[in-house]
Amino acid sequence: MTKIVRAGFTFAKNCKNAVISTSVRAISITKQLNLKELREHTEGTTLVVEGVTVPSPRTALLVRAENLSGYVPPESSEKKPCYMCALGLDVKHTDVLILSQFVRSDGCMLPRRITGLCSRQQKKIGKLVTMAQKAGLMINLTPSYCHKDPKKRRDYKKFNTYFDEKTIFWWRIPKPTDKFKR
């Protein structure tokens, strides 16, 4: 049984006596071992949904700090930094080519168990993604019901907004009136 599942889980069901709805797709008996893509096709009256193992399209283009030329490995006593901390990139919310790697196709931030970031970087990237979405820079990565064009948004949302990355880790953003308080 386990062997069959590892090869890629396949289950067939009759369309007439459909018990499981097609929207429920997360079916696996054992832990999935490889990057998988769900494909479904019909053979006569039978709907076949199978998880096909596919190679990751990103592996060839991957940038890691340890592969770069001027890399200094951290001392063994220190905790190993996550890959974004090690790279030390100054990511802005306008860098949509980087931020779009951390989101699903509907624009949601991926959880930490998938991104593999440290908690601080996960929080930072998550907020940068929110900023980019609010500024209307990643509108092709949105749910289908979303207004794609920022100009079609209501009230104050239809005008251009930019964000300051310094505000991400501030406990409280000071207001201009704060300087008058004692």
């Binding site: 490889n34 990057l35 998988k36 596919v54 990751s56 990103r58 991957l62 940038v63 951390f102 991104t115």
Partner: peptide, 11 residues
């Protein structure tokens, strides 16, 4: 790319 999917990720 900076982020790669984990091995058991469903696209």
């Amino acid at each position: 790319k900076v982020m790669d999917y984990p091995e058991d990720y469903v696209l």
